[in-house]
Simulated assay, not measured.
Amino acid sequence: MARYLISFEKGAMDHIPEEDLGEVGKAAHAVCEEAKDAGVFRFAGGLSYDDGDVEHAVVGTDGMVMDGPYPESKELIGGVLVVEVPTRDDALVWAAKIATACRCAQDVRKFMHDLELIE
Rank of each mutant, 00 (worst) to 15 (best):
G45R: 00
D90N: 04
D62R: 03
M112V: 14
D107W: 15
V54A: 14
L117H: 12
D50L: 13
S73H: 10
R103E: 02
D90I: 02
V93Q: 12
A95K: 01
C32Y: 04
Q106H: 09
V85S: 00
L81H: 00
G45I: 05
L21S: 11
E19S: 13
E116F: 10
I77G: 02
A27G: 08
P17I: 02
S48H: 09
Q106V: 07
L115C: 05
V31P: 02
E55K: 14
F41R: 02
P17Q: 03
A44H: 05
E19F: 05
L5G: 00
L47E: 15
T100V: 15
V54D: 15
P86L: 11
W94L: 03
F8W: 15
M112D: 13
A28L: 06
S48D: 11
K26H: 10
M13C: 07
V58G: 12
K10T: 08
G45D: 03
G52A: 13
E75K: 10
I16E: 02
D89K: 04
G22P: 03
G39A: 00
L5H: 03
P69K: 15
K10C: 07
G46W: 00
A105K: 13
G60R: 12
D53K: 13
K97C: 04
Y49E: 02
E116K: 13
I118G: 08
V82G: 03
D37H: 01
L21H: 04
K10I: 07
V31L: 11
H56M: 14
V31D: 00
V24A: 02
D62T: 12
E116M: 08
M112N: 10
Y70H: 14
K97H: 09
D89Q: 07
A57P: 06
D50G: 14
A101H: 02
D51I: 08
K10P: 06
V24G: 01
W94G: 00
M13L: 07
G25K: 08
F43D: 07
Y4P: 02
V93P: 04
V24S: 00
E75Y: 06
A27T: 05
K97V: 06
F111P: 03
